[in-house]
């Protein structure tokens, strides 16, 4: 399968007064064509920064210090801001987590979307408006024609999220990073938005990268998934193998902490400790202080993700030794949840 985007050794640091925050410290993964990719991890693991780095819009005081992002045979990180402006929104788009803050409150939603279309396509104002109304209908905004002239505060949260998605889709991008598209929404609307995204993906034929911390969304939407932890990749694999046979202790711990709808409510298992301070990250494997399987070797070298099974990359150096134990633990946790 061909890759639409290859991210290699991407490093994005934030130069704050307290010190250098290594938000991304050399992450690599490929996004395959026509395969919905999931980026999953806790808050602060670097999911959003990855998307912003790809688009070249890392906010101050952040800077991309190393790495390559290959898209259409070119390294995006070598492009000038002017060249990137043409790609942003047009070829690579992002929809943001919180729709109530990602739409500008002082302009009509319609004009904000029309602006993006007019930036990337050679159309008149009237044509852009028609295109906006079309896309508003595609995201199922009722009475799109009148709603074109309304401001963000006149929309409900669910509608606002759909409008934010509509804006990212307006110039028909090849690849869309959807940053936590359902986090700000309640559960009923969440399902609507997810369905809609799948529908739009088929309709416009774009590749989707779902950024989320919600394993449920990953299971529902994605075919391939990359698990991030503290600015490093833990593993990249197909969704099925990640859920059934994770090859990294962090993924296993993450899966164990997801409640099951089958069992009774009981104490959830949690991962001990907190995510590390990214100014002074732990030596070696970032996860070792919280890892049940950590040995001395884990403190020494910072492992890169390597292929450990077919199509399955893992960054755990001890995976061969601990694999059986890992699977046993996951199985036990799942059985316990199901039996109670």
């Amino acid at each position: 399968m061909a890759n639409i985007m290859e991210i290699e050794n991407l490093k994005t640091y934030f130069y704050t007064e307290a010190g250098v925050v290594k938000a991304l410290d050399g992450i690599s993964f490929n996004i395959e064509e026509d395969v919905t990719h999931g980026l999953v991890g806790e808050s602060g693991s670097g999911k959003t920064v990855t998307a912003l780095s790809v688009l070249g819009i890392v906010p101050n005081p952040g800077r991309i210090v190393d790495g390559r992002v290959i898209f259409e045979g070119e390294n995006l990180l070598e492009k000038s801001d002017k060249e990137m402006q043409k790609l942003r929104g047009d070829k690579i788009a992002i929809s943001f987590q919180d729709p109530s803050t990602s739409l500008n409150p002082v302009f009509t939603v319609g004009s904000q979307i029309a602006e993006v279309i007019m930036r990337h396509q050679d159309v008149t104002k009237e044509e852009a408006k028609q295109a906006v109304i079309e896309i508003m209908e595609a995201v199922r905004i009722p009475e799109a024609e009148q709603r074109y002239y309304e401001y963000p505060h006149q929309f409900s949260t669910g509608m606002r999220q759909r409008m934010a998605i509509a804006r990212s889709l307006s110039a028909r991008p090849d690849i869309l990073f959807a940053d936590e598209p359902t986090t700000a929404l309640d559960v009923t609307i969440e399902a609507q938005v997810l369905n809609l995204m799948q529908e739009l993906q088929d309709k416009f034929g774009m590749d989707l990268v779902m950024i989320t911390h919600d394993m449920g969304v990953i299971a529902e939407m994605c075919k391939r998934v990359t698990v991030l932890y503290a600015g490093r990749v833990c593993e990249t694999a197909n969704v099925d193998s990640v859920f059934h046979e994770p090859k990294h202790p962090y993924t296993q711990a993450l899966l164990t902490s997801v409640p099951s709808v089958l069992g009774k409510i009981k104490r959830l298992s949690v991962i001990p400790g907190t995510i590390p301070d990214l100014i002074h990250p732990p030596s070696g494997c970032r996860f070792h202080p919280r890892c049940a399987f950590a040995k001395d070797v884990c403190k020494k070298e910072m492992p890169d993700a390597v292929e450990v099974a077919k199509g399955h990359e893992s960054a755990c150096v001890r995976i061969d030794e601990i694999n059986d134990e890992l699977q046993a633990r996951l199985k036990k946790a799942r059985e316990e949840q199901a039996s109670d």
């Binding site: 943001f96 500008n104 990212s168």
Partner: peptide
């Protein structure tokens, strides 16, 4: 976020700053 979003949709620097942020 809306300034970041404006930047993400490829608008020129001038538009992002003098239109979306300044207003």
């Amino acid at each position: 976020d809306y300034v970041l979003a404006a930047r993400a949709s490829g608008l020129s620097d001038r538009k992002v700053v003098y239109k979306h942020a300044l207003r």
